[in-house]
Amino acid sequence: METRELLKWSAQVKLREKSKQEGRLEHGHRMCAGCGAPTVVKMVLMATEYPVVLSNATGCLEVSTCIQEFTAWKTPWIHTAFENAAATLAGVETMYRALLKKGKMPENVKFIAFGGDGGTYDIGLQSLSGAMERGHDMLYVCYDNGAYMNTGIQRSSATPLGADTTTSPAGSANPAGKLQQRKDLTRIMADHGIYAAQASPSHWLDLMNKVKKAHSIKGAKFLNIIAPCNRGWRTATDNSIELSRLAVETCYWPLYEIEDGKLKVTVTPEEKKPVDLFFKPQGRFKHLYSPENEGVLEKIQAQIDKTWERLLKESEGPC
């Protein structure tokens, strides 16, 4: 990233001013060193210029931020179970409306649910879909690290094709790791007729703009944010931002939003890089470079190219 570009972004979000404000996520949490998730949360909250109530699905973020009498949260936060961050927050938001009506609450309180990909794409999909369909005034943020990391790196429906996880291991009978494509959750959520977008912490101006836009819309919103996990991705602890950037630049994780059914690509990489650059630094894809897996990477690249072309075409509007 060019420094000049960074400074431009920084001016746009008034980063210096923001650094003077008190954060809502405190240090002393127990996420792994270099985890992408806290940075994602921090950015989402930084872009939330309102009082905010949070809910959290069971997962890394939840167990590491609220343990015994130690909570890292400085804004109301609730965790109940794994599959229901959306339903739980829907209940909170409904009570808010009931109390607002009676003059017992201030206006303009925002509601955000955080869930990992396991709690969102898989076990929490029903609860999420229900909350979005009902139109609760809330933003659901999935921090997608592509596996059940909290329980020790098991495959989820967000795990990319070819990834080696503890339940989709690459072995002698199946050298390829995970055999299925990822579920395209962002599109599924957009099909609820809501604002849905993908973001990355590397492109934080875009991320914060999407959060701001989401808060400006009344009703349900969904944001899918890539959050590298250096343990699960088997990469160095300093790599989370770099990998999220490569995910965008290779179009593995395209940045776009869907509003009123219209899709808009929000960041087009200056030069679309080969997916290899994103995969190479990650141990979970190492086996794809061995002879038994000849052709797998090409297949993945072809899939990415196809999706990206489709996105660009849709982004220009119907032809």
């Binding site: 229901n84 739980t88 909170v92 009570m95 109390l99």
Partner: peptide, 11 residues
């Protein structure tokens, strides 16, 4: 789940 969220919220 929603009943729990709503009840914790305070009502």
């Amino acid at each position: 789940s929603a009943a729990i969220g709503a009840s914790a919220a305070g009502g």
